[in-house]
Design a protein around this nucleic acid. Sequence first.
DNA 1: GCGACAG
DNA 2: ATCTTGTCGC
Length: 227
Amino acid sequence: MAYYRRHDAPPTDPRLLQELTELQKKMQDRIIIQKPDFELKLIAGCDSSFIGEDTILSAFILLKYPELEVVEKVWHHGQVELSYVPGFLSFREAPNLLEAYQKLEQKPDLIMVDGHGISHPRRLGIATHLGLHLEKPTMGVAKKVLVGKYTEPAPTKGSISPLEYKGEVIANVLRTKDNVKPVFVSPGHLMDLDSATEIALNCATKYKLPEPTRLADHYAAVFKKDI
DNA sequence: GCGACAG
DNA sequence: ATCTTGTCGC
């Protein structure tokens, strides 16, 4: 994608951000929020970690569902083109994530991404962005809110509270473990909020993060030693 | 004008 | 994301 390779402008150049904003607005029309039309047998989790300022390492972990047994682990590293700007995370991390995804021998039915889906100013969080590029069902699980308001869900595992933005519920604030800060679950693409929430909870074992993203996060750090 | 702001 | 020590609680 041409917009991924921009060495001709500073990372946070206002003109570039304006350009990316326009691109996201065009991408909005292609987002599909619906009940999943597949049997969830294989789920992937992905996450990235950094080495220094501009070297990124992304990992994809493939798991059986609902058993949550790991069946494949891949990773890829490269250089990032943009600095981090809230609302534009995907332009910084998606390129390398897509490279890592190609290394999977088996492809998942659904991808759980570390970050937001449609709970984004222009409905284009990194989970949605990846879903559109891969034409694959995706969902996002973020650790912090980006936009919207919510009330704290009850302290017990399984409690949910809606995240509202501009009069719409764009995510569910889900408690995945007793007395631990909740996560923000949102559909990315070819997925709906209720299904995403149910899947996130089914993948929550004894930790705050659902297994797919927890393991991706874990291995993204472990694989750094292999560089 | 003053905060808020995924990873 | 990343840099970092001790500390509270199950």
